[in-house]
Amino acid sequence: MSYTAATVQLLSQEGTLVDSDAAAEYIPYIENLDDEQLREFHRNMVVIRMIDLDAANLQRQGELAMWIPSLGQEAAQVGSGFAARPQDHLFPAYREHAVARIRGVDPIKLIEMLRGLSHGGWDPKKNNNFHLYTLVIGSQTLHATGYAMGIQLDGNTANGDLDSDEAVMVYFGDGATSQGDVSEALVFAASYQTPQVFFLQNNQWAISVPVSKQSRTPLYLRPSGFGIPGVQIDGNDVLASYAVTRANLDAARSGTGPRFIEALTYRMGAHTTSDDPTKYRSSDELEFWTRADPISRFETYLRSRGEGDQFFADVVAEGADAASDIRRRTHELGSPPASSMFANVYSEPHPVMDAQLAWLEAYEASFETSAGSQA
């Protein structure tokens, strides 16, 4: 795969800034970033990758039912995650581990969910408007569009204040674009001119189906048929991900309608830990994308700005410590009480849930009574 003249890239694969027509309008966004913000980009990419790799190992050791790797997609997630403003609502698919961490979700919540210990994992209201993972492919685009319509109806957008007007961003993959839910979401977003960004992480594979088979045209052109402008970016370029997302979110919140970003990236690992990508991907393809690794590219850029060895060593140490902490806490996880399956099914207490819980408690108690009688 190769980038075209229309692909926005601010940082080349060699780690140098790009001067191109496609990049020109986004340069001011990265010029406003200070050194500490750039360090945070790198820190989050490295730490989440190390957590991700250790979580996959935990699954192999029988500690999780499944793990969904984000390996290789860190720049798309970290750039866009930092581009969102605090009041924005983010709707993930199921691979957005870096965005979850940026928005304050403790990674152990991801572990609990994929170990089968929780309904959904976290409370979006307590985690900076980061909504729950969605395993039904593409359905989160409808959830996000509905929420964006609600923001409009509540009058929480297009007041001219970038730091208070709300916007919505939804993450999904190239496979989801073949689902009807995504097309329906685009229809309603365009019709209602929602304050919303559709963020497509095109990681080249919908499990074992290549994107070339799913679509004969670049996916960023697809929303134009719905009246929504689209842009394609180098998704392994954290600077492009940040700048283009910030620009499009602010345009959407200002009342100009929804936007669509296609981030060209690559799923370097398996679709999930139940998948074997060697059965359908070539080693040459993996080698190409390994050379485009987002973390090593950004490290080269930071070193060119004067960042020294100590910073990078400290980040690796922080990542190793974070991964070790997740491993320790995973081993310490217990089983939740059976009553937890009835919690949060409804937003308020519900008589049906109360009745089912009472039945379960009585049923479990009957075994204790039976055992006591036999004794």
Rank of each mutant, 00 (worst) to 15 (best):
S2V: 12
L10F: 06
Q13N: 12
E14G: 12
L17T: 04
S20P: 00
P28G: 05
N32Y: 13
L33T: 06
D34I: 06
E36S: 15
E36W: 09
R43E: 01
V47L: 04
R49H: 06
R49Q: 08
L53F: 11
D54S: 11
L64T: 07
L64R: 04
W67K: 07
V78C: 07
S80V: 05
A100M: 08
G104F: 03
I108H: 05
I108R: 00
E112A: 08
E112R: 10
G120H: 15
W122S: 00
P124C: 04
K126R: 14
N129C: 06
H131W: 15
I137K: 09
G138K: 02
Y147L: 02
M149F: 14
G150D: 00
L162M: 12
G180T: 03
V182R: 02
V182P: 06
E184P: 04
V187D: 07
N203E: 09
S208M: 11
V209I: 13
V211D: 13
S212R: 14
S215K: 05
P218I: 07
P223W: 07
F226A: 06
V231E: 08
I233E: 02
D234R: 02
T245V: 00
N248Q: 12
P258F: 01
I261G: 01
E262Q: 10
L264S: 09
S274Y: 10
P277N: 05
T278R: 11
K279L: 12
T290Y: 10
T290I: 09
T290P: 03
I295F: 01
S296G: 08
E299L: 00
T300S: 12
E307I: 13
F312Y: 04
E318G: 02
R328P: 04
T330F: 05
E348V: 15
D354N: 14
Y363W: 13
S366Y: 07
